[in-house]
Simulated assay, not measured.
Amino acid sequence: MQAGQTSNTQGIDVSHYQGAIDWHKVKAAGKAFVFVKASEGSASQDENFSSNVQGAHAAGLLVGAYHFLTATSTAAAQAEAAHFVSVVQSVGVLELPLVMDCENNPSNVDRATINAIALAFLQDVERLSGRKPLVYTGNAFGQNFDAPLGTYNLWIARYSDGVPPEDTAAWKQWNFWQYSDAGQVDGISGKVDLNQFQGGLDLLQQYASAGSKAPDVAHPQSFAQQSAASASSSSSSTAAAQPVPTTVNYIHNGQTVHAAGLLIDNEDYVPLRELQSVFGFAVGFDAATKTATVDGHPLQDGHPLQDGRLIGDTTYVQAASLVTAFHGNLVWDNASKSLTVRQ
């Protein structure tokens, strides 16, 4: 994964273990965001959750919340998701994502079960909250997660600000990096976890205002124009046809990953974020030019992937353009509305 940058936005994460916090001192120390522990399991709530959220907001920090996952079955994961969302809703709207903290396996369940539990939790959090959550995990434990988890943004723990986290099957880059568990910050007695966000404060604010969907997969000008045009046409008597859900089968290095796509005006579209999680292409965002990039190349006029659609908070690109750009092939099955993309 990528290395940290001195220009990245700095933040912390806390729980009741940090005790009473002087949040104005934390802000003055240069911390712009915080993830606050909300809950654990299906019934426990962190005793300082509400006071930490209120204090951080009063000091002007951007706030997110995390849940420590203990489930050993998908049913238990769904129960924990419901508990987490209920706890978070009690404090109102948070700017940063809700987070699944999945970092150990004390019950020694197998890899497939780890993934099934994580997906059940994430999907229910998104369904109940209306926002796409974030995955927190450790550098080593992250190796347990398979490619489908890569559709969720990553907060990774590796305690070294000089050695970046390692690539996994699901992720080739991080959005947040917890690089120390022994930080010292004014306003907090004792140690606290230190984090950085991949980008400056302006990009973090965009991330927050986008409803927790990272802006590094957006093409603000053309996609925004298309979204506006779509909204305008849908309110007229000649509304455009609604996108049709499709199944996308990505085949890469002999492995098949199933995901969701869309059929729009008889053209197949696939989520841009999956270029990274499935094929390993580096999807990024140039804050200076407000332009998305794939493998360092901006998605501007003339780029093979310039034709994109912003649907909800997800950016889709034409499958045919994907194949052209990355020398693959695709097969469409109209009967099952299934697209196979092979590289």
Rank of each mutant, 00 (worst) to 15 (best):
Q89F: 02
N153M: 11
E95Q: 13
V14C: 04
F84T: 02
V26T: 04
S236W: 15
M100E: 06
N144I: 01
Q10V: 12
A79K: 12
N329L: 11
H57A: 07
I156G: 05
V135T: 03
Y17D: 14
S237R: 15
S212C: 10
A325D: 05
Q2P: 12
G190F: 07
S86R: 10
N153T: 13
A118D: 08
T247F: 07
Y207C: 06
T238I: 10
A335F: 14
T247I: 14
P271A: 12
P165Q: 02
S321N: 10
P245E: 08
V217I: 15
S42G: 11
D202Q: 13
A319I: 04
A116S: 12
P304A: 11
V87P: 00
N139Y: 08
Y136K: 01
K290I: 09
G138D: 04
I264G: 08
F223E: 13
G138M: 03
A29V: 05
G183K: 01
W171N: 03
Q343I: 10
V323G: 06
N153Q: 14
Y159K: 09
T315G: 15
S209G: 11
N115G: 07
G92E: 07
K290D: 14
F68V: 06
N105E: 06
G199F: 02
G199Y: 00
A76D: 10
R131T: 15
L262V: 12
N153H: 12
L299G: 01
T238Y: 13
T247W: 08
A157L: 08
V63Y: 00
G55Q: 00
S235H: 09
P298R: 05
D202P: 02
P271Q: 04
S44C: 06
G4I: 08
G261R: 02
P106T: 09
H327Q: 14
R127D: 10
R309S: 11
N175G: 11
Y66Q: 01
I251C: 10
A214P: 13
A71T: 00
S107R: 13
V91L: 04
F141A: 07
P245D: 09
I156W: 01
N48C: 12
A140V: 12
S50Y: 04
Y136V: 06
